[in-house]
Design a protein around this nucleic acid. Sequence first.
DNA 1: TCAAGTTGTCTATGATACTAGACAACTTGA
DNA 2: TCAAGTTGTCTAGTATCATAGACAACTTGA
Lengths: 242, 242
Amino acid sequence: MSMQDTASSGVALWRLVADGIERGIADGRFAAGDKLPGEMEIAETYRVNRHTVRRALAALAERGIVRAERGSGTYVEAQKLAYPLRSRTRFSEIVGAEGREPHGRMIEASEDVATRELARELGLKTGAPLVRIEAIRLADRTPICVSTTWLSAELFPGAGTVFAATRSMTKMLEHYGIRDYRRGATRITAGIVDATDAARLDLPLGRPILVVDATDLDLEGKPLVTKHSRFAAERVEFLVEP
Amino acid sequence: MSMQDTASSGVALWRLVADGIERGIADGRFAAGDKLPGEMEIAETYRVNRHTVRRALAALAERGIVRAERGSGTYVEAQKLAYPLRSRTRFSEIVGAEGREPHGRMIEASEDVATRELARELGLKTGAPLVRIEAIRLADRTPICVSTTWLSAELFPGAGTVFAATRSMTKMLEHYGIRDYRRGATRITAGIVDATDAARLDLPLGRPILVVDATDLDLEGKPLVTKHSRFAAERVEFLVEP
DNA sequence: TCAAGTTGTCTATGATACTAGACAACTTGA
DNA sequence: TCAAGTTGTCTAGTATCATAGACAACTTGA
């Protein structure tokens, strides 16, 4: 595989090799602690120059996924957060259940007005005043997802401040007298991380993300908040249970 | 944004611009038929040279996502397949419901033996004989997903041949007397397409894919088949309904 | 008709990406 | 101790990526 004969995809060869190796680690072909094949062997399997393989391994080493030992070999170190999608999903409970420490932090809150799309989702009128909250969630200091949350500024005045203080969506809603809520429709797709999210998630540019759009409802089915979340695909795996 | 000051991510600048525009189309900032901003304006928003924008637009035009008209502007043409995840998911029904024509085709079938992982999933013993089926599914001739399906070679002898003939998982199971089945646990994550799948899905290298691992059960909850599917993220959107 | 704004094409330059080959530095096991 | 196998480092050449500027070809609306 050379740059000449490949229909150029805009993705560097070393990056494809790095992704291939990472995939091998993710689906268990290489377990944590295993020794990877030699640089020469990897170069042959991907049909690239050894230097290209070295670039790929350097990138993986940079991210702490592998570790090279001169004269000996290159070894694996890695694993994913299991994230169940139920009608009752609470980030802190999910992370806690995996024995990891959940954290949340508000990045920014601002006033906004409802687009037609958002209005429909929240059962409001186009142009209705909204609070927009950008937040990040982490497990053991590793960023897992960033999300943009919208909710009615009339029903939840000062929601941004409350969220910043409580650092929890659940506690923020409790503040407005909402004891329980459930997940409405959820839409999932995948994309490539943009520059802003890359910085927030501490991800290199070009990494895949899981994009989740969801609306939470109160117990009578009335929309409360709607969210647009971006998860680092390499750090999480969604579970849909029957 | 220049190549010098960017911490090199292995993704070309033009590709980032193309992904950004595509994302804008996907989440409705640019609707089908809309005119995109001029090349100069796009160049300014992304802080790149106009030639870099042109490369991005050329790549999108190549894939039929936009269309350039000299002297006038560049226009959008696009949309995604909505794919509900229920306990009863049938590809042909989902595609048909969108008013599109579903197709299925077997790529390859072979004998295999169960790894520990596969054995656990299927309720068999490690090393049990399996049939492995590689298949592709399309909507209106556009490839949507490729999947690898495993099932017991003892319970379903000659399954590959039956599937090749019927071109349908449902009909194949009917052949063995299974009238109905339902979806068990489903695991979803995202990744980057590899060279083999890229060719099968008619995707450029480096595009994001949705990776779905699922097991289908009979009505008593006994595992029938387990699948590893890769969906072209740009052509599909999963819907999780409460 | 004409000016302003759009996409299309050309030339040119410097930085990266990839390949190729050679050899040094180090580890492992016989 | 030594040979084989590993990662680390150097030089060099070609292709691609990105920038820059200039101008042609075309569309649109005044």
